[in-house]
Every structure is written in structure tokens, then in C-alpha cells.
Amino acid sequence: MKGYRKYFGKKILWFVITLIVAVVLNFLLPRLMPVDPVAAITGKLAGQGATDASAVQRIYEHYMQEFGLDKPTYVQFWLFVKNAVRGNFGISFSQYPRPVSDIIGSAIVWTVALQLPAILVGWILGNLLGALAAYIKKGFDKVLLPVSLFLSNVPAFGMAVVMLVIFGVTLKIAPIAGGYAYDMIPHLSWDFIKSVISHYQLPFWSIVLVSIGGQAVGMRSMSIYELNADYVKYARFLGIKDSKIVGYVFRNAMLPQVTGLALSIGTMIGGALVAEIIFSYPGLGSTMYSAVTAADYPLISATTLIITIMVLLATFILDIIYGFIDPRVKAAQFE
């Protein structure tokens, strides 16, 4: 038990440290730049004439007051953290006067509901395929490996566009944009759920397809490595059935894949967020896109922070799970 405690303690410490650094960066990076973001943005808003001058003025004043932009940097940071902890990210420029937290609150549900299952399903399918390729080897492997390699190199947004054109525009078997039919108001009804499910298909499968490739390639080499391990030979010579040994091998090959997922989840989520834009899926990716196009600074800042926290949490949870399922972790803590 002591080994576990040490491992989890370490992981929690790391989570806290990276979180702090991420928050600091999120706060500091925009402020390190030569251009004053608020002035630039309000200037741009006024220039575009999209918002009337008094609204710009109101936004500017609200922003200055809320975040204390006229105060020293450390005071600003303190305010930033205090507000962030309370879930207060200010008022959106582009959807004034809607609070940023409200926009993000509704977007995050869509993103999590889309990406979490998609990445998990892609991970599982990819590992199965990779294991199969390693075990069957001849012929099958020759076809599957190049295909997986090719698939894993299709960018997520490219896969999204191709899927959208084939299944949405040409075959018309799935809707191409949004999280639900545009003429519906979210509520709990059978029609709405059906609409949500049909809108879910294309974004879901395009993320799944992209993640399969990379996982399959990794799992294949891991499995080949394990199949050549000494314990395989030994177990065979003790009369254990091949099917049982394959079980050992795939379990052992799968475990590092959990860490692999933890390490690549940031990149995967990044790609998947961009795929959201293609489908105008009402998640964080599309929110970020509209925030960028509308130069909505508070919304961008909050979205990036939330995405970082999501990635850090996902990594942390995967690390914890890994600690439980791989006994090597416990052993390593005693060394």
C-alpha cells in the first residue's frame, strides 16, 4: 500500500504543479505580447462597427473593472485566479452580455460527450486491430499496417471533411452540421434525442477513425516486442496453451498503451477540437473558433484554460488508472 501512496502522491503533486503553471501561462502569455490585447480588441470592435460605441465602452469599462487591468500585474493575477476559481470568466465580447462561464458551460457538455467516447472507442478498436496485426502477421499485417499508417496520418479535420462529404452531402445519411436540428430547442424529448444521436454520428466516427490508426500502429509494435519476450517461450515450454499466452502478451502490450494515451491525449483533443469546427458541433472547438473570429478575448482565454484543465485531468486520471492495473508501477516505487 505504501508504494501506491507514494505513486499517487507524486501524481497529485504533479497535477497541482502543472495546473499552476498552466494557469500562470494562460494569464501571462497574452500580457507578455507587445500589443495590449484589450485596447487592440476594443479598437477592432469599434473599427468594425459591429457593436455600437457605447457597448464597446461598456465592455471596456466592465473589463477594466472586473480584471483590474489598471492595477499591477500580481494584483491582476490574484483577481484572475480568484475569479477563475469562482467560475467567473467575465462577459463575452461577441455575445454580450452573456457571461463566458455560461457559454463554456453549455459547450463543455457537448465536447466531453463527443470526445471522451470517441477517443476511448478509437483506442480500444485501434488496440484490437494492432494486436491482431501482430498476431496474424503475414498478409493481414501487410495490408493492415500501411492502411493504419496512412489513416493515422490523415489529419482529424481532413477525416472530418471527407466523412462529411461522403456520408452527409453525397449519401445524405447523416446531418452535416450542428449538435441537433437547427429548428429545435434543447429539451428532453424523444425527437430531440434522436436528432442529437443522428448529428453525433459523423463527428464521432471521424474522431474514432483518426485515433484508430495511431493506436493500431503502436499496439502492433508493442505486441511484437512482447511476443518475443522470454516469458512467452517459458510459458510455452510449461505446456500453457497459446491462447492463454496471447492473453498475457496483449495485457502486457496494452498497459503501456494506457500511458501512451495519457501522453497523446493533449494532441488528440487538439485535433478533435478542430474537427468540431468542420461539423459546427456546439462544443469548445467551435466556441474557440467563433471567439477567434470575433476577437472575443475573455472567451478565448477561458476556453484555452478549460481545455488545458480537461487535458490535465484526463492525463491525471489515466495515470491513476495505470497505477492500479500495472503492478510494475508499485514495484518501481520501492527501488
Binding site: Y231, R251, L255, R328
Partner: peptide
Amino acid sequence: MNALNPTQ
């Protein structure tokens, strides 16, 4: 040294 499955 490596004859035993490490995770079993």
C-alpha cells in the same frame, strides 16, 4: 530473470 510474466 525475464522468464516470468511481469504483470502476473
